[in-house]
Amino acid sequence: MFFIGWLVIIKNQKGKSWIKLVESKEIIEIFFHGRGGQTAITASQLLAEMAYEKGFIDTIAIPIIGAERRGAPIMAFTKISEKKQIRTYDSVKEPDYMIIFDTSLLDIPRIKDTIKEGVIIIANSPIPIDTTDFPDNVKIYIVDATGICIKREFMHSSGPILNIPMLGAFGKVTGYYDLEIMEKVLKKEFGEKKVEKNMIVATDAYESVKEV
């Protein structure tokens, strides 16, 4: 579905626009919304690693760094590409997927505005999220990542480690990687000892993520 013709409108400085047919959307773009301490930035990095492990030829993880504090809104992006080299460093404006670690962020208008038509959202929520004023064709999946972390005691000093269950859910929804790939990457990143617990929460999320 990402290799069909795609219309991109490029605006120039004075607001005049021209329309250009870009051959295909070969680079898949993922937008992470989280709060400081929810491990969203690590998630963007791990996702790049898992996609690469699965055979995507190029990936880039882009954290947006400002003056972060625990609880402050955090943005990060990952771009993954199966065939084409990724040559951009700019931020993602029309994501294919959005991973939302904290649905209270959607109460902030400038964050809600980043939801674009046709995007697939994976949100950390035990209940369906409020889609009032959402653009058209937005597909929503939910997973109770916080609940899974609490149940499995998967916490760090300031709260649940949400990135692992969110990435488990993302793998299930997209099929870009499976639990086996996740285990391989996490082993490399965090060592043999910690993998088991990581995989328990990843599996819980992988199995429980659902479309609403």
């Binding site: 690469y52 990936t59 880039i60 993880a61 882009i62 460093y89």
Partner: peptide
């Protein structure tokens, strides 16, 4: 800074 220093690529 940040554009290369903090983004990750193969």
């Amino acid at each position: 800074g940040f554009i290369l220093s903090h983004t990750s690529k193969p």
